[in-house]
């Protein structure tokens, strides 16, 4: 069986909120190292990989590997019933067809219990190769979210151009063009607000803004976002959730038409 107690229950809620609009159903693979979810969106353009380490829970117990298929929309609605400082406990029997969720308020004054039906999901699991990315950009998550939102008024896609000076995001559409450049180390006081660029070679790739906007829903989970790019491979957008785990998104680039 699985029993996992998360002192900061809000993290779980934010995680599910960050992926529920991208994928409708997902399999949570639980084993002794933690809880992982990998799922692709319907059109197989984007993939989300959520991982919550066993050490992020207290306590964490998983005797046998378990796969819990969950409708994320329903899961998210249940998690909305949780108080901000609640402690959440997830439990599932080995042969059960539900997963149970318990929310306890900090002072123990209120306990809510929910049971969520499991669903049978036939999803393909993708093997993601290790990639040495040409460019790795760390920047404030809120800044990235804003850029995606701002540029989406202009067009459907954004060209991300990483050079040693900075990262340039540009979009164009019927009404006009626009670009936003973020320079390296632009932080003033706090380290978490700075931008760092690790560059092997300059890259320029085009991505769908709709998906990036969707990814940036994870902004609530982390101060910084890391974008990893290489020519002609999917973009990796990573949000690290402190010591608890991470949410990684992969997005296939848009490719110029060859004929």
């Amino acid at each position: 069986m699985l029993e996992a107690r998360m002192p900061q229950g809000a993290i779980l809620r934010k995680c599910i909120d960050a992926i529920k609009d991208l994928v409708t159903d997902g399999n949570f693979d639980c084993n002794d190292s933690g809880i992982a979810l990998q799922a692709m969106d319907n059109s197989h353009v984007a993939l989300v990989n959520l991982f919550l380490r066993a050490s992020g829970f207290d306590p964490y117990r998983c005797d046998r590997n378990l796969t819990l298929g969950v409708n994320l929309g329903g899961f998210s609605k249940v998690l909305k019933c949780m108080g901000n400082d609640d402690v959440v406990t997830v439990k599932a029997e080995d042969d059960g067809d539900t997963v149970s969720l318990t929310f306890e308020s900090k002072d123990g004054g209120r306990v809510s219990e929910f049971e969520l039906k499991l669903v049978d999901i036939d999803s393909e699991h993708l093997g993601i190769p290790d990639t040495n990315y040409d460019a790795i950009v760390s920047m404030p998550a809120s800044e990235f979210q804003r850029i995606c939102r701002d540029l989406s008024v202009l067009g459907e896609s954004v060209i991300i151009d990483v050079s040693k000076d900075g990262v340039k995001f540009s979009a164009s559409g019927e009404s006009g063009t626009g670009s936003i450049t973020v320079k390296q180390g632009a932080s003033v006081d706090k380290e978490s607000e700075g931008t760092t660029i690790n560059l092997n070679s300059a890259v320029q790739l085009t991505f769908s803004l709709k998906y990036l906007q969707n990814f940036s829903k994870a902004t609530a989970l982390a101060d910084q976002v890391t974008l990893s790019l290489s020519a002609d491979v999917p973009l990796l957008v990573e949000y690290t959730i402190g010591e608890v785990g991470y949410v990684r998104y992969y997005l296939a680039p848009k490719i110029g038409d060859e004929n």
């Binding site: 080995d94 699991h125 993708l126 296939a252």
Partner: peptide, 26 residues
């Protein structure tokens, strides 16, 4: 015409064969 086409992840990542999972439904 001339618009960049959206790529797909399955052209970059390979689909892993299904492992026998422990779930009852499976």
């Amino acid at each position: 015409r001339g618009q960049a086409t959206q790529g797909r992840l399955d052209t970059f990542f390979t689909v892993k064969p299904k492992e026998g999972s422990a779930s009852k439904k499976d």
